[in-house]
């Protein structure tokens, strides 16, 4: 692989700085994907086992694109190279530790519509006023709480000065708790769970976390400017041991406020 002719000076530096944390501020159209793929290929060429490399992207399209390019560079795509979306990688991790989490192997993933239907059923079973506890609104709050990895108590605390009076938020917190309970009983994850449960697994089972920390000597993250607090937490946990975390992003293009 001839880096000198294929990459510009800065891209080359980004590819070759393999050790320690690296932040690549990549402007629009500056060859971000190119740099990422060359880095993966370079690491492998330097003798790093594909098994020890983890690459995280935001869309499947980006992941597939990158896989194709890596394959072109090194001939074969090693099956033990983990390159995928945050969600996809989390599913991969979760499906190996379902038992520890109290799930069985035939788990399902709920999409938004299904999550909302479940919230609706819970509101019904709690005999709450359908008008007051509008499904979309309740789901919105629950979704936010899950995204932020709040506990039931944290949800109540967060909304204690909210615009609704009485036991409104207390009731929503109850729906929230029930929602999570039912998901688990039904062997189901919603989208937020994919990240949330992975983090939970790592925080509650340090020995499992240690395995993955050992494994992923080199971590690469695309679109770092848009990582959520949960994604950030996950990245930090995984990178803690080897500290070889390479992130690419453009603060100019950050468009998801948390």
């Amino acid at each position: 692989m001839d880096l000198e002719t294929m990459l510009n000076e800065k891209q080359q530096q980004a590819v070759e700085t393999t050790e320690g944390p690296v932040l690549v501020l990549a402007g629009a159209g500056s060859g971000k994907t190119r740099t990422l793929t060359y880095r993966v290929a370079y690491l492998i060429e330097q003798g790093v086992s594909p098994y020890n490399i983890l690459t995280l992207t935001f869309t499947n399209k980006a992941a597939e694109d990158m896989k194709g390019k890596v394959e072109k560079l090194i001939g074969d795509l090693p099956s033990d190279l983990w390159l995928g979306t945050f969600h996809g990688i989390c599913v991969r991790i979760l499906s190996r530790h379902l038992e520890e989490l109290g799930y069985n192997s035939n788990f399902v993933i709920y999409d938004r519509t299904e999550s909302e239907t479940l919230v609706e059923d819970i509101i019904l079973s709690f005999n709450l006023d359908k008008e007051k506890y509008e499904v979309k609104k309740v789901y919105g709050i629950i979704n936010k709480a899950k995204r932020k990895l709040w506990s039931k108590a944290e949800l109540i605390e967060h909304y204690q000065d909210g615009e609704q009076e009485g036991d409104f938020y207390q009731n929503i917190a109850d729906v929230y708790a029930k929602y999570n309970e039912v998901l688990k009983d039904n062997n189901a994850f919603d989208f937020n769970d994919l990240l949330g449960k992975t983090i939970e697994l790592f925080e509650e089972k340090p020995e499992i976390l240690a395995d993955y920390q050992d494994r992923f000597e080199y971590i690469l993250i695309d679109e770092y400017q848009d990582t959520s607090p949960a994604q950030y937490r996950l990245a930090r946990l995984l990178a803690e041991k080897h500290n070889n975390i390479f992130v690419v992003g453009d603060d100019y293009q950050s468009i998801v406020r948390q």
Binding site: A14, T17, G20, P21, V22, L23, V24, L25, G27, G29
Partner: peptide, 18 residues
């Protein structure tokens, strides 16, 4: 990132090919 990960190397890719 600089604060979260000590001694980070920062590299700017400013040449736009697009």
């Amino acid at each position: 990132f600089n604060q979260d990960f000590k001694d980070a190397t920062v590299i700017k890719l400013e040449q736009n090919y697009r």
